[in-house]
């Protein structure tokens, strides 16, 4: 969101004191509960985490971003959580958490959480609401296997393209290593970026797939 003429970024509206934060959290939760049926997450001991339904997450984020009394213009992070074997947990296995902050009203910050069932791990993508969500959702897909519906390029971000499994799931053995041989082709992303910047692609390199002898390394399997 662009800073309004009334409050440019360099003139924060109010200081981020503990009281201002507490007041914001109270007001924010009341508004979210009334409009979107949000509930409070009891696991959060450090601030406000509002739990909303998966089907309404886009609406909620758009509201928080555009509403003049919230102005949550920054999605600091969105990530997955795996609650497998979490003591006393009987809710769905996964959650996706969105961490929001306002750069204009500096005391405004909150977290949103949506529960995700293991056998239906699909969440709507919010990459068009917050550009930073693009890579964050790719990372969450990579590490937890949660699918973001409507994402333009849901590829692995941190792990190798041929990696099998999702390593931050609690049932992935932390020390299970995978030897992967091929180089990760990034040309498609590079070319897309160049096109955005106004370049014309005259010729693309042929895709290379290294032979097995060329890349046969690794004693351990």
């Amino acid at each position: 969101m662009k800073p309004s003429a009334a409050t440019p970024y360099h003139q924060a509206a109010e200081p981020a004191t503990a009281e201002a934060r507490a007041a914001f959290e109270k007001a924010a939760f009341a508004a979210l509960a009334e409009r979107f049926g949000a509930t409070l997450d009891p696991l959060d001991q450090w601030g406000l985490t509002a739990v909303v339904d998966r089907s309404r997450i886009r609406e909620v984020l758009q509201f928080l971003r555009d509403d003049p009394s919230f102005r949550m213009d920054t999605l600091l992070d969105s990530c997955g959580v795996d609650y497998l074997e979490y003591p006393g947990h009987d809710l769905p296995r996964f959650a996706v958490v969105y961490i929001l902050k306002s750069m204009v009203a500096v005391s405004h910050r909150l977290r949103l959480k949506v529960w995700v069932e293991e056998d239906d791990a699909v969440v709507p993508s919010v990459h068009d609401l917050y550009a930073s969500a693009n890579w964050q959702e790719r990372e969450t897909w990579d590490q937890y296997g949660i699918v973001f519906e409507g994402h333009p390029n849901l590829k692995r971000l941190l792990n190798h393209a041929d990696f099998e499994g999702h390593p931050l799931r609690k049932d992935y053995p932390a020390q299970r290593r995978q030897w992967l041989l091929a180089n990760d082709p990034m040309i498609d992303q590079l070319e897309a970026r160049l096109r955005v910047l106004g370049y014309e692609i005259l010729e693309s390199p042929a895709p290379t797939s290294p032979s097995l002898e060329e890349t046969s390394f690794g004693r351990k399997k």
Binding site: L158, N159, H160, F163, R177, Q178, W179, L180, L181, A182, N183, D184, P210, E214, T215, F217
Partner: peptide, 13 residues
């Protein structure tokens, strides 16, 4: 990392 390993190997080659 394992993602970097093929790159390292190729540059060494």
């Amino acid at each position: 990392t394992y993602k970097q390993a093929p790159i390292l190997r190729r540059i060494w080659e």
